[in-house]
Design a binder for these strands. Structure first.
Length: 429
RNA sequence: GGUGGGGUGGCUGAGUGGCCGAAAGCACUGGUCUUGAAAACCAGCGAGGGUAAUACCUCCGAGAGUUCGAAUCUCUCCCCCACCGCCA
């Protein structure tokens, strides 16, 4: 959520900046709603104040020994007048502030000034490339064919068990997939200083509102039947970031920031992506991800996004997978994000770079929705935190990248050096 | 599923109809003292809205109700804890 004071003072500038995100902010509608709310609020407040005074007076009279009924007589006129109007005004005030709240919740975050203009991913700007795509002296297969050749990767079986966009892995393939997860976790914990955390894979609606998936993106989520309105998590970002919801951290608890690494499955309905990436395990309803989440004092967020992204890049580098880093343009930027870097790994089977990580700075946008705060000793007041997160990395897609980049002429797959300790020392699949 | 006990400020915890936005302690901030620190003592210290600043309003798990007036009484719901049953 944006700061409503900021909008009140700079509505036109805010609207202008949101254009970069292809969001049309109706300033006039906002102002009218805000004005309505304020007026209804002020009126009902002054009535409440009057009633409070009257009640207090009765209390005083009663204490002086005057009978209750007699005491009531003295203020009867005031109270009768108030009761008439109060209910209607209260309702009006509630309705107005709910409408305003709903509007505020539907406004996306403002992009950074450095975010490039553009409508879609084609306008994203390359920041750097790392590594050289390997030259193959045989015909490259995509991961589906590689998987079929070495065995242990089965989409048809998954389709029988559940449906499309799922995978079954067996034997060494399943182990390689697990090895990737362990390798990523160990690297982030031991070398990058993140704190491992295990969280629920189902969350309530409040948590999803906090990080910005609700109210606007319900159709992307799997919602569970039953009395509790729980949802399967689309990313660990949701449960991990909500660790800080409705919390005020003391400065010493916060230190120079909270850093979490968390491995979870992720569940996405992929509504509206019919026909896209239907082959293989690029786009699944269920996939594993190792997520990095930081919650820091404002001011250091921009720098923390840079290091978080580098932490994710380190995984690709250790696996020796060629990739490029792009900064997302306004039109491709997520709802809650100020600035996002995508890491795209080279996939020989597609002859393309494909997204394998997305690292974003949300500023105080999520924190304001969540009321995630820290007590600033300089002011003594609770102030909003800044949140940053990114994939480090999407495990399923990393497996795809390993299978495709490390395939051998004889139909096998070489195991990257970094993963061998996790594979019992094996060097080939 | 059953029975019982609870949800109050950053934390612990008192408060059963008006004097309560709320005792006390911890934490925090400022001061006295000290060469410095600690201790001790004194003072301050909830959150949100609103205002130029005051006023003023809201908030004691959530919602509805009773009442002139609700943290306090009634109802519904949610959550937590303990014990029993079942269970990975």
């Amino acid at each position: 959520m944006l700061d409503i004071k900021l909008i009140r003072q700079n509505a036109e500038q805010v609207a202008e900046k949101l254009k970069k995100k292809k969001f049309d902010f109706d300033v006039a509608a906002f102002r009218q709603l805000d004005e309505e709310r304020k007026q209804a609020d002020t009126e009902s407040q002054s009535l409440l104040a009057e009633r409070k005074q009257a009640s207090k007076k009765i209390g005083e009279l009663v204490k002086q020994g005057i009978p209750v009924d007699e005491a009531k007589q003295t203020v009867n006129e005031t109270l009768a007048k108030i009761e008439e109007q109060l209910n209607a005004l209260k309702q009006k005030a509630t309705a107005a502030s709910e409408a305003l709240e709903a509007l505020m919740m539907s406004i996306p975050n403002i992009p950074d000034d450095e975010v490039p203009e553009g409508n879609d991913e084609d306008a994203n700007v390359e920041v750097l490339t790392w590594g050289e795509p390997r030259q193959f002296d045989f015909e490259v297969k995509d991961h589906v064919d590689v998987g079929e050749e070495v065995g242990g990767l089965d989409f048809e079986l998954a389709s029988k068990i559940t449906g499309s966009r799922f995978a079954v892995m067996q034997g060494s393939m399943a182990r390689l997939h697990r090895a990737l997860t362990q390798f990523m976790l160990d690297t982030h914990i031991n070398e990058h200083g993140y704190n491992e955390v295990y969280v629920p894979f189902m969350v309530n609606a409040d948590s999803l509102r906090g990080t910005g998936q609700l109210p606007k993106f319900e159709e992307d989520l799997f919602k569970l039947e039953g009395e509790q309105n729980y949802y399967l998590i689309p990313t660990a970002e949701v449960p991990v970031t909500n660790i800080a919801r409705d919390t005020i951290f003391e400065e010493k608890e916060l230190g120079d920031g909270l850093r979490f690494v968390c491995h979870t499955p992720c569940f996405r309905s992929e509504a509206g992506s019919y026909g896209r990436d239907t082959r293989g395990m690029i786009r699944q309803h269920q996939f594993e991800k190792v997520e990095l989440v930081k919650m820091v004092k404002p001011g250091r967020a921009a720098a923390e996004l840079e290091t978080l992204t580098e932490n994710a890049e380190a995984i690709l580098q250790k696996l020796n997978l060629p990739y490029r880093k792009v900064i997302l343009c306004g039109g491709d930027l997520g709802f809650s994000a100020q600035r996002t870097y995508d890491l795209e790994v080279w996939l020989p089977g597609q002859q393309k770079y494909r997204e394998i990580s997305s690292c974003s700075n949300f500023g105080d946008y999520q924190a304001r929705r969540m009321l995630a705060r820290w007590r600033n000793p300089e002011t003594g007041k609770p102030e909003l935190l800044n949140t940053i997160n990114g994939s480090g990395l999407a495990v399923g897609r990393t497996l795809v990248a390993v299978l495709e980049n490390y395939q051998t002429a004889d139909g096998g797959v070489e195991i990257p050096e970094a993963l061998r300790p996790y594979m019992g020392g094996a060097s080939k699949l």
